[in-house]
Computed example of a mutant assay.
Amino acid sequence: MHSSSPADAPVVREPLHAPVAHLVRGGVVEGIHYGSVVVLGADGHVQLQLGDIEAAFYPRSAVKPLQAVAMLRAGLPLDGELLALAAASHSGEERHLAGTRRILELAGLTEDRLRNVPDMPYGAAVRDAWIREGRTASRLAQNCSGKHAAMLWTARLRGWSLADYLDPAHPLQQAIRETVEDLTGQRVARVTVDGCGAPLFSISLHGLARALARIASAAPGTHEARVADAMREHAEMVSGAGRDVAALMDAVPGLLTKDGFEGVQVAALPDGRAVAVKIADGANRARIPVAAAALARAGVDPELLTEFAGEPLLGGGEPVGCVRVARALDPVPLAACV
């Protein structure tokens, strides 16, 4: 069932972040990552919160599962790996490029209709290979190309204009906004432009967790369940080989998760438990350790999460410290700190 009346938009303010992780080198706290974390129980109630989970923020690419649900609601006939690609921040591997071409082909369109920004592949190994081969940036290689191809096909199916499909006033983007508000249970606070050129809607961290919980726990056959199933079953289409998003979904049975630039991670389980993380300084090194600790607080077996406790800090090539999650979130650390 869709919510009939989303709550008011979150307040736009300077977020009241709290310490969520410490850089510990040789037993001394060398740096502190601030951020916010929310853990929801299966009943949707907040089980733990750190920082400011109600302030307006931009979820960046963590909103892609919601955008994919919106496109299915609008009639997009995708499933499986191509639906996973529509919700992806992909690495630019050949399978990702081939999948995006396939979506465009199904829509009767070509790559030149894409309006995302040209870029090199996001995956480090793939990008390095492109550079060695003398290949240049392209819209197809940019990590959001699957989403943009799906947006174009959705617009074409509905008879909407294609050239301006990224305009926030376009019927496609209005439909996506409506779904974001429905799934989060709150109105959008602000609209801006994401790095790829698509409209980006400001919600709260709490709202993002609620939304992914609804998607992960949806009844079989619903649009939400189709997105969740596709992402879980094709985790490397959502991200890429060696990426932490795919590794997390492989490690934790039933887990649905998505990352976003500037230190965002959201994850949810089939029973509705969910976590969402925002690292204030956007640091990748804190994002996954904090998310793993939040999942442990949500009841995920810590043994499944040990590989996500963070990379050691090195001194002279040897481990001399770690990123240690704040005690308020992780009273029993997933991994020991040197």
Rank of each mutant, 00 (worst) to 15 (best):
G27W: 05
D271F: 08
F261Q: 15
H33I: 02
R297M: 09
V338I: 07
A107N: 05
V20R: 06
R287V: 08
D182G: 01
A21L: 13
Y122G: 00
Q173V: 03
Y34Q: 03
R324A: 12
R135K: 15
Q49K: 15
L82P: 05
A68R: 10
D250S: 11
I53A: 02
A241Q: 12
L166F: 15
L162Y: 13
P168E: 06
V29S: 07
L162D: 13
V180P: 15
A125P: 11
Y34H: 15
L76W: 07
R285A: 10
R210D: 00
G134D: 07
A283W: 04
K258L: 04
A70C: 10
W130Q: 02
P121F: 01
P333E: 06
G240E: 03
V46I: 15
G26A: 07
A283E: 04
A9T: 15
D250G: 12
L85W: 05
L305D: 03
P312L: 01
I176F: 14
L183W: 11
F57M: 14
V275Y: 03
G272I: 10
A219F: 01
A169S: 13
M249D: 01
V277Y: 02
E178M: 10
Q49F: 05
V188M: 00
R115N: 13
R243M: 02
A280K: 13
L295T: 00
A70G: 12
P289T: 00
L248M: 14
A189Q: 12
A56D: 07
E318S: 12
I103L: 01
